[in-house]
Simulated scan of single mutants.
Amino acid sequence: MNKPLIIAMDFKDRTAAESFLDSLDSFTGTPLFLKVGMELFYREGPSLVEAWKEKGHRIFLDLKLHDIPSTVQSAARQLAALNVDLITVHAAGGIRMMEAAREGLETGTPAADSVPDCVAVTQLTSTTEKMMQEELGIPAGLEETVIHYAVNAKQAGLQGIVCSALEAPAIKEHAGRNMKAVTPGIRMKEQDRNDQKRVVTPAKARNLGSDAIVVGRSITSAEQPWQTYQDMMKQWRGKQ
């Protein structure tokens, strides 16, 4: 995975998303790693992913697949044809469902392409322990639940999990150093947390053992997005 900083392209449509990318063109000559989530994918569909792949960007397709195993397997098989680099499922779907997603990706990937990595969402960074216990009915502690999901994802043959950077050390301890921790909830110290509860800086994420960080509005809504991207990348790479 090579420690990427993934930009969450949480825009309402293709026009807004590509306007943002156009604003970076004068600064960057290298492809970016872009997250396409539910809002943008449901509006624009596969054609957007295909266009960005043609431009050389890497794509994290964050649709959080969660259904019965056969449905997830079929969906993953279809998505694999888009040649994305990373895809998500919900760990709450269980081991067999996660195995089915992996099988779908393997069978759906064209022979000339690499099978996308698949990571499992454990608990959203907007979830607190109180919410998880009182609203979701999960009596265990938050970290204990995340660890349990991560061990299940490893058993299912997935490459990693999505979690808060705060849980990355425990994931590495219990699920192994090779389980990748993809961590949203990244902010610079001076930035608003918005609706996320468990957030850290890029430097803190690096020190905690994150393998990839996902940054959205902190970059896409910044007055100088390219400068903010560079500042966060320097922290993430340990250059400041």
Rank of each mutant, 00 (worst) to 15 (best):
M1R: 04
N2G: 01
N2A: 10
P4N: 05
L5Q: 01
I6W: 03
I7E: 02
A8T: 10
M9P: 02
D10N: 14
D10E: 09
D10R: 12
D13L: 10
D13T: 07
T15W: 01
A16S: 15
S19T: 15
D22A: 05
S23T: 04
D25H: 04
T28D: 00
P31Y: 00
F33H: 08
L34S: 00
E39C: 03
P46H: 11
L48W: 07
V49F: 04
W52T: 02
K53W: 07
K53F: 02
H57K: 05
L61M: 04
D62L: 03
D67G: 04
D67P: 05
I68K: 07
Q73V: 00
Q73D: 01
Q73N: 09
S74D: 12
S74Q: 13
R77H: 09
R77I: 00
Q78Y: 05
A80K: 10
L82P: 06
N83Q: 10
D85Q: 04
A92E: 12
A92W: 03
A92Q: 12
G94C: 02
I95Q: 13
M97G: 02
E99D: 01
G104N: 08
T107A: 15
G108C: 08
G108H: 09
G108A: 10
P110V: 06
P110W: 09
A111E: 14
A112M: 04
A112T: 10
A112E: 15
S114Y: 03
C118W: 00
V121Y: 06
T122C: 12
T122H: 12
T122L: 11
S126C: 10
K130Y: 09
M131E: 14
L136E: 13
E143Q: 14
V146L: 03
V146R: 06
I147D: 04
I147M: 06
Y149F: 15
A150W: 10
V151C: 11
K154C: 05
A156V: 07
G157E: 08
Q159F: 02
Q159Y: 03
G160W: 04
G160Q: 05
I161R: 12
C163D: 06
S164D: 08
A165R: 05
E167C: 09
A168D: 06
P169K: 05
A170N: 11
G176H: 08
G176L: 11
R177W: 02
N178S: 14
M179R: 06
K180L: 15
A181E: 00
R187S: 10
R187A: 12
K189M: 07
D195M: 13
Q196I: 14
Q196F: 14
K197N: 13
R198K: 13
V199K: 03
A203M: 14
D211R: 06
I213G: 07
R217T: 09
S218C: 11
S218T: 13
S218I: 03
S218V: 09
E223Y: 01
Q224D: 13
Q224Y: 04
Q230L: 15
D231C: 07
K234Q: 15
Q235E: 15
W236S: 13
Q240F: 04
Q240L: 14
